[in-house]
Design a protein around this nucleic acid. Sequence first.
DNA 1: GCTAGCGTGTTACTTGCGGTAACTTCAGTC
DNA 2: GACTGAAGTTACCGCAAGTAACACGCTAGC
Lengths: 214, 214
Amino acid sequence: MDTTQRTEQQRSADRRRRELLEAADRVVLRDGPGASMNAIAAEAGITKPILYRHFGDKGGLYAALAKRHTDALLESLRAALDAPAERRERVEATLDTYLAAIEARPQVYRFLMHPAEGGSQNDQGFDTGRHSIPVLRRMGEELAVFIEERLDLGPGSHQLARVWGHGIVGMMHAAGDWWLGERPCTRAELVRSLADLLWGRLAAAGDRVGGPGF
Amino acid sequence: MDTTQRTEQQRSADRRRRELLEAADRVVLRDGPGASMNAIAAEAGITKPILYRHFGDKGGLYAALAKRHTDALLESLRAALDAPAERRERVEATLDTYLAAIEARPQVYRFLMHPAEGGSQNDQGFDTGRHSIPVLRRMGEELAVFIEERLDLGPGSHQLARVWGHGIVGMMHAAGDWWLGERPCTRAELVRSLADLLWGRLAAAGDRVGGPGF
DNA sequence: GCTAGCGTGTTACTTGCGGTAACTTCAGTC
DNA sequence: GACTGAAGTTACCGCAAGTAACACGCTAGC
């Protein structure tokens, strides 16, 4: 049989693919999300058509690259979410993990979240062409599953968990994006503020004196 | 003096600009966010350089177009937020207003939120090139101001209001985006679920029996 | 040993975009 | 009637994604 042969080839192709992805990673980290296929190919020491043979099109390369980082990020988030501690502590730890990740590697973050920004003169996007920011969808979906598994939400818990999963992820994302751009406070303060929001402080706050209320 | 003259010209230029924007609007509504400058020019019955004279570059056209829709949306949101009712009711009305808007005109929504999706064969983005999704930033900032004005949040209220503003907008956006794609429930259900989240039901929920808690 | 395949790589090209330079045309002014 | 300046045109540049067609190297069968 040619199984060993095919396995051999498969292994070789996989290795090559990993090398290419690492090269692409370096370029994206250096040039931002506007990195061109030519630049990536050059970094990998080859030329464009090979990239296309491996990844189909730019979206394929984007997806493969995004999956690596997303998997890693989700792994840390799961760990934070699963730690043995009070719920509030774990929520804060999860928020902090996410924010620490985007703080530590903003270039990666920008690539994942704002694929079509373009640092060069032209703004050719690095979009997958299909879903909108798959990272967020995946995170939302995972969080939804987690919530539904762990929390007793009464009837309609499935829908509720999904809404909350996507909503919380969106909250985290938007606040993080804004924070990363303006750095108006420390990470710990941001985490605390967001957790306060999730803990219902919005509903509990009093009206401002003299104002028409809210 | 030439004031009247200049005013005359200014008026004419403004009218033309509005016409061009309306043409651009039609094209974006028809072709999605991937609309090309050529297509827009053709729809307006002219050629590219004129667009460039009026809007500088594609980002300028994007910004002008986005501003129109954003202004309109913000106006409705302000109205919902300012209505005379209980806080919870107003929050729900605001969420519902936003969701109704994106539901009614998904093409506009996609243009504003996912400018780089590309309906044609090529995925040239329609990005402004600078900030990420300015609509969300504006909404977050406005909501922050509103919260700070109306709510008594104690010390650090300024930071807190800003974090909450961006966080809530992000929550609304992400949940809305997901909902618009999958339509897993009615709008009213979604509104209720999100309001529940903001009202601290996450913190109040009990652990699921038999699970490790959350 | 020689040739048939197949995977890896190349050069050179097409298409389509954003953006611009240089020319033309036409309204109103002295 | 010549002059100015805005509106509009054609024709082009640069650059990116993506592709076709060709060239090398390796293993397999005769």
